[in-house]
Design a protein around this nucleic acid. Structure first.
Lengths: 319, 319
DNA sequence: ATGAAAGCGCTAACAA
DNA sequence: TTGTTAGCGCTTTCAT
């Protein structure tokens, strides 16, 4: 094409307000350039960063992101079906999962699905996950080796697989450790205020706990403030606390909370890489990856660690 | 249609894996059912909630959300053009803005645009905003009436309109108040660590500040920990601190930070309502709404308020 | 109640 | 290099 003509036509097109219709193009080339993203678990603060990275990278790779919310598995099913109708080329599902028949539908449609923070029984979907049993084991061991004896277990949502897996592993460790036992076991303890109040109850109980495992950092920080401010307890000397998530606040010098760190950044990049590579080569089989979380010992548990801000070793197990 | 036949056909369709193609439908009915969402300012923690509400409500109304990221105004332009090519029916733009010609293009395309946390000079785009001058004024007044005299101004990103508007208003108040002045004026102070370090510098300076205005709660909490832990200063007696955003952490009993609260929830719902109603009635002119933020006095400033958790009066100014 | 035909805006393949 | 044609998967209209 002559540059002259090209220029002229482009100018006219612009003046006429012409925009190529990406939908019509998608129809004919059989590529929508759209990727679906189904999100649950919005209370996890690191998901803001996740959303950002997803959109940034996919945009960069020439895709558009279609974002859907789910608050139940039925939601996830309808969301996934919607996305398939919109001809997305792939979909990420975060902290939730579709039913088997709907998942099968996506497989038949040839649309790769990547599950994040959820397991999948068969090898039909890519998954990227933490070993939550291991997380539970590590948390319990941290407390045991620090010499605590009477554990309070402050669970989150008992319907969430990661929560039950963690707790199961904790109970296993407890069962296998003489002299260490669970004196309180509460579900649905979430948030700063809940933590702070529950600390009072723990101390008023017949059998006082001397350490606690919380289902989130926010809860743990509430417990910590309850222990230090309200009860004037020596933390970590008389009372030990461990949280989950290694949030920014956990690292603040006012808190220095011992917490479980997930390699969030790596998980995100890996999830994107996995989907992109399956998009480039549809014959590639779905992979299941397990990330290793580590507890970072700070100042709410006795023991060796003193505000160690070390980067955990990233060990990936691929099946 | 006979229910019998209907059932039979549906079953066959399902077995064949038939999914209606939403793109093709959109092409013919001239309605994509897609809404664009261009996001910047990802460091604002309340944006996670915003994303959630946007997707929840739009999904509920039968729309799909297309999420794009922008980190500059050029990004915003290309993002908006992309969205127009994908035939979105409307778009939200958060904490950024398009250039005038690109905005005009969207107007010609008949696609309503709602700007959130950004102003727009002319009345072509809907906007929903806080009165940032008023925010600056309120923050300064809070400090003045509490009897502080030597202000340290810890700005955020000097390129961000909300930041410059706030600071402008603060300077105005300072200029009009004898005995009250700015002893330190720093830009790009963001984050807990920055705040904590800067506190040291403030106290080591020739002329010590006795109060500080921070550009975010996180910074303010860093300053607070720096003052209390490192310097053992009496807060609020010898040193006053005010933050912006009224984050969850600001309300924690360990902090009780005086901060500016924006009516985020209401702003979000209003933004969605505005777009939906313009979608339903395209002849409806764009509206500009201004939300009123309020400082909630807690325990990092002297004065009447003692952890008042009152809900601010929501006053909306519509032009 | 069902079938046929037109066309949404685009790309791809072909012919001029 | 340019123009023509077919058709992506759907809805709508009109005829059966």
């Amino acid at each position: 094409v002559h540059p002259r003509t090209r220029e002229r036509i482009l100018a006219i097109a612009d003046r006429l307000g012409y925009r190529p219709n990406a939908l019509a193009r998608g129809l004919i080339v059989q590529r929508s350039s759209m990727i679906g993203l189904i999100m649950a678990g919005w209370t996890n603060p690191s998901y803001l960063f996740m959303l950002r990275r997803f959109t940034e990278r996919l945009q960069q790779e020439g895709y558009q992101v279609m974002l859907l919310t789910s608050s139940s598995e039925e939601d996830t099913d309808t969301a996934l079906q919607q996305l398939l109708q919109y001809q997305v080329e792939g979909v990420f599902i975060v902290s939730t999962q579709p039913s088997l028949p709907v998942a099968r539908a996506s497989i038949r449609a040839g649309t790769p699905v990547v599950l994040i923070n959820r397991n999948w029984p068969s090898a039909e979907l890519s998954t990227i996950n933490c070993d939550n049993y291991d997380v539970g084991r590590q948390m319990a061991h941290t407390l045991v080796t620090a010499g605590y004896r009477r554990l309070a277990l402050l669970q989150g949502d008992p319907a969430l697989p990661p929560n039950v897996q963690r707790c199961e592993a904790i109970r296993e460790v407890v069962a296998g450790t003489s002299g260490f036992r669970i004196v309180t076991d509460l579900a649905r303890c979430l948030g700063y205020d809940a933590g702070r109040q529950i600390m009072q109850a723990l101390w008023a109980a017949d059998e006082r706990a001397d350490c606690v495992i919380c289902s989130s950092d926010t809860t743990a920080l509430g417990v910590l403030d309850g222990a230090r401010f309200d009860l004037k307890l020596g933390v970590p000397d008389v009372f030990g606390i461990v949280g989950v998530g290694d949030s920014a606040q956990a690292t603040w010098s006012a808190y220095q909370l011992t917490s479980v760190r997930f390699p969030v950044d790596e998980m995100i990049e890996l999830a994107i890489d996995e989907l992109l590579s399956r998009l480039n080569d549809p014959s590639q089989p779905p992979r299941s990856m397990t990330a290793r979380a580590t507890v970072v010992n700070r100042n709410t548990t006795r023991g060796p660690g003193q505000g160690s801000a070390h980067i955990p070793d990233k060990r990936w197990v691929t099946r």
